[in-house]
């Protein structure tokens, strides 16, 4: 074996911790995909907005500076959610609602792919608008959490990533409960399962979609806020994550919230553990190989239903 037990456990721990942030991002994307069947290329850029929101709340304008370098970044990540939710609401109200919804429910239809162009356009606007507004200098949230850890035997667990793990699990859990136990959440899922039927059942599909879209980008923004305290970023950072998000969501099964969470986590674990056996450079190749393997063996994803395959 080319690696020791410590190496193995350390990589596993890193995989789970990094993966938890991916998992939360994937949940956000999964909600949007599940409800609207829209491939949103701008998801990474909404996450970038979440990063900047968290940054300005702590380091930039220092609204949350009084919370100190430990609690501040976590609270800021939470608050990034509602802020980006608002941005999402506006983009859906004025743009997305015109290319999605009841009229475009049949996502395999020839015209519905126009949505992809709209999200690509949104992505360009957010990235380049971000450059104009936020500037080109990479930035990050300064916190001692990023470079301190708890020790369990030989294994070191990064404090910032651990807190981020907890927040991810809590937020993802809350979203899951919300979608499965509340009226609004059930309406959303009904609209997702069968748009046409939902219309007949009296569900306002457009409203349900708006909620899904805003909630989806908001949750991904929370994940972004969490990542912002361990990684530095600039306005074009979204691209680095959007692929990971899609891989996670497809692995979990398009349309499954729980699946998206496990899919994202799995991506993180594969990414970090691949370095034990493969050259480090191929860690992302490993993601794609595992991704392809899983969808060939189980085309509907880990948690997807068979019917969604066709």
């Amino acid at each position: 074996m080319p690696f020791s037990l410590t190496d193995f456990l350390q990589a596993l721990a890193a995989g789970i911790l990094v993966g938890s942030a991916y998992a939360l991002m994937c949940v956000g994307l999964g909600i949007i995909f599940g409800a609207m069947r829209v491939i949103n290329f701008a998801q990474g850029d909404f996450m970038m907005l979440g990063m900047y929101a968290a940054f300005y709340l702590t380091t930039g304008f220092g609204v949350l500076a009084f919370l100190g370098p430990y609690a501040g970044p976590i609270v800021a990540a939470f608050l990034a959610g509602p802020i980006v939710y608002g941005v999402g609401w506006i983009t859906h109200r004025f743009i997305m609602s015109r290319v999605t919804g009841v009229g475009a429910a049949d996502s395999e239809g020839a015209g519905a792919y126009g949505q992809i162009l709209v999200t690509l356009g949104l992505s360009l606007i957010l990235q380049n608008g971000g450059l104009i507004v936020f500037g080109s200098t990479p930035t990050g949230i300064l916190t001692p959490l990023a470079h301190s850890s708890w020790e369990i035997g030989d294994i070191l667990l990064n404090k910032g990533r651990c807190l981020s793990f907890v927040v991810s699990v809590v937020v993802a859990g809350a979203v899951y409960l919300f979608l499965s136990h509340t009226r609004v959440g059930k309406g959303l899922r009904a609209a997702a399962d069968n748009t046409e039927a939902a219309v007949y059942m009296g569900i306002d599909v457009d409203r349900a979609h708006r909620l899904a879209w805003s909630l989806g980008v908001g949750i991904t923004a929370v994940a972004g806020g969490l990542v912002a305290s361990s990684q530095s970023f600039q306005p074009y950072v979204g691209f680095d994550f959007v692929i990971v998000m899609y891989a996670g969501v497809v692995l979990g099964g398009l349309g499954s919230i729980l699946g998206a969470f496990w899919g994202g986590l799995l991506i993180g674990i594969v990414q970090q553990m691949a370095t034990l056996v493969l050259p480090y450079q191929l860690q992302n190749t490993a993601i794609f190989v595992v991704f392809l393997l899983i969808i060939f063996l189980r085309p509907q994803g880990i948690f997807g239903r068979l019917s969604e395959r066709t």
Binding site: A11, A14, N158, T275
Partner: peptide, 8 residues
């Protein structure tokens, strides 16, 4: 995305 395996 994370430097843990490198630094390990």
């Amino acid at each position: 995305s994370d430097a843990t395996p490198l630094v390990e």
